[in-house]
Write a protein that binds this DNA or RNA. Structure first.
Lengths: 211, 211, 211, 211
DNA sequence: GATGAATGAGCCTTCATTCAT
DNA sequence: AATGAATGAAGGCTCATTCAT
């Protein structure tokens, strides 16, 4: 047992963090199968073996990356101040938040995608993620309840369906941006196109929840 | 040019077809990177090298699979008899068609997904696909025009946004079925859940396009 | 047994010839191992199987290419009119001829090289080549005898050594042109360099055979 | 940077060395295209992938083999004590050295040959080789200058031409030994033939450089 | 003669992972 | 905690050659 300085521990935590970030980037860019452990090591400026030391194998590493990703979006979401608005407006705020989060963290949807390609095999073994995502559900749940009470949101809107709709409208656009841009012969990534998409998404959700 | 028996041509064409189908299944199941040429050969009961003889390499093979996939959905879509309905209802028929197509051909969305993970690198080199997908656009275009004329669809609905919305609501649900089922602790694949999803999707689109 | 027109036979001979030429070029360019049967077929605009029909396999094809190559240089050499010159000058004519032949038929030395890399495995089975090359020996033999009689060439010059010297001085320069050009940082292929080389070669041989 | 036992460093360096030697032998025997990485691994009693770990790929490996080969001949050449002889005799010593080096290292000329077959594609990327070969040039350069001063070597002998002549006369004989032995129906590899060849080479060079 | 289809063997290379210190 | 060395298992692809008309 060696006494080790705080500096050391800091360094170690730091290196783990660097590996995690490198893995995050690599997995998002190339998917799980396309990602290379060597490449992650290089990005993290770490010895490859260290990755195995800290994370056991590629799957565990991916699982941790995924958990961190979920944690991040849910934390940011939870930090939103939605109480100040009527529920219907608050829901549109949520649409905006989701959209902007996807835009600012394009790897997030790519990670989810990769995980789904693998039939959620990592998520299945992750205890924490279900917990983490509970907030996603409950925030919207409360908004819906409040909306019904306020009369700003109609009856019969299911939490899960709402959450899925909010995600779906943005997710599909962004994840398929490459192919859609070709099929429509138009760059879906330019600002005007992105703004227009957000407008449509809000319009669509608003129409759907309107009493 | 030698005259050759029908049997022969049939055999060769048949084998190419078998390879294509095997590739379709393999790529859909495992994604481009996860797919194995060996595995495709085994599925097609063909010699592995024959795949290279006919398709040059894995990328070309994927491109052809992708093109065939697009061709199929667009052909089926074009065969729909939408003229018999008012435009707003016809659009909901389109929502239904899309949804059922996705359900019956789960590989389709997985192929698209894989291609997007690769940033549309195959689609970029495929001349035919843009052409193939034109029908997707024009069918909806005509429906929208008719709907405005009939007064069953409101002004200001963009074709691309409509098409994307129709696809998005179903695509996201299905492609993320694995992870969503875990997060919501509920099997999203059972019939009742699927029916409910279709209902919500139609409800959402209907509300959005209503004059 | 089918009676076939002269045209047909001509075509067949022609196609064999085309294959042979294509093989000549391919083998010279890439060596035996680097050469591709497919590539030869493409160059000859012939079906690959036809190559096997006519030539059995890659080795036989190479052997025939090699024999044709030897036949060609020896035929041209035999056609030289050396009787008009004193023997010492005639020998220098031979130096010139050899050099210019190498220059005009760069594949020749490349073929020889490739064959030597393979330890003459094709030549060993070729009956005709020894015969073909006899002229190479006898021409020089007679020149040497004449030279000694004339007093223009000294005693003690061995035929084989002379032939080898003549070939060596040019062959080495040309076959190693790529590496020598790099080591000497100078393009050994430009005309001035080639002319200078020939001058040196003649100078060297002349000095050596001088009585 | 970790301090590691001498044993370790020795082992690793040793294994690299063994791989290099195995590659040297394999490339010389079969040429670049004919050489097999598997075979090199077997010769070196090393895991095949270790070759890639240390040398990236077959081309890099060949380049290093080539560099080592050049380095070796030039080092031995530089170690010759030529100052003790008049320049003309020293040049003949060089002829002898070159000849004996070729005899003792038959792979050397085979490697050069293979590289030339590939149009010097490895040498082109090798920075060190030009440097290494500078000594080849300068040694002869000084001998020529000294010879002219002493009056033992005539004017007008170019360094490059001299070097090439020295190499050419031996190189051609040895590299084409297989085919020449067949054409002349005589074993050019037996000692008497080798001795005679050296005599001729010296005679030829001597005659050429004589004032 | 001529050709499209088919194949076995093998080649270079990659990659996640483990060993040994 | 950290690292260089090493490896088994494949993976995509190539190539000479043969099959079957």
């Amino acid at each position: 047992m060696v006494i080790r300085s705080i500096r050391d521990n800091y360094d170690a935590a730091d290196k783990q963090q660097r590996i995690l970030q490198a893995a995050h980037a690599e997995f998002a860019e190339k998917g799980f199968d396309g990602a290379r452990v060597d490449s992650i090591a290089a990005r993290a400026r770490a010895n490859k073996q260290l990755i195995y030391y800290y994370f056991t194998n590629k799957d565990v590493l991916f699982t941790q990356v995924l958990e961190a990703a979920y944690r991040d979006i849910r934390e940011q979401e939870a930090a939103l101040d939605l109480a100040a608005f009527p529920a219907n407006e608050a829901i549109l705020k949520l649409v905006e938040f989701t959209w902007h989060y996807y835009l600012k963290n394009p790897e997030f949807i790519r990670l989810l995608n990769s995980e789904n390609q693998l039939k959620a095999r990592h998520l299945k073994t992750s205890g924490s993620t279900v917990e983490i995502n509970r907030s996603w559900i409950s925030i919207t749940e409360h908004l819906l309840a409040r909306g019904r009470a306020e009369g700003t949101v109609r009856d019969g809107i299911d939490v899960m369906q709402l959450n899925i709709n909010i995600s779906a409208l943005g997710f599909f656009y962004l994840i398929n941006q490459s192919t859609l841009s070709i099929l429509y012969q138009k760059d879906l990534g330019e600002q005007a196109a992105l703004d227009e998409r957000l407008r449509v998404m809000k319009e669509c959700i608003a129409a759907w929840i309107r009493p």
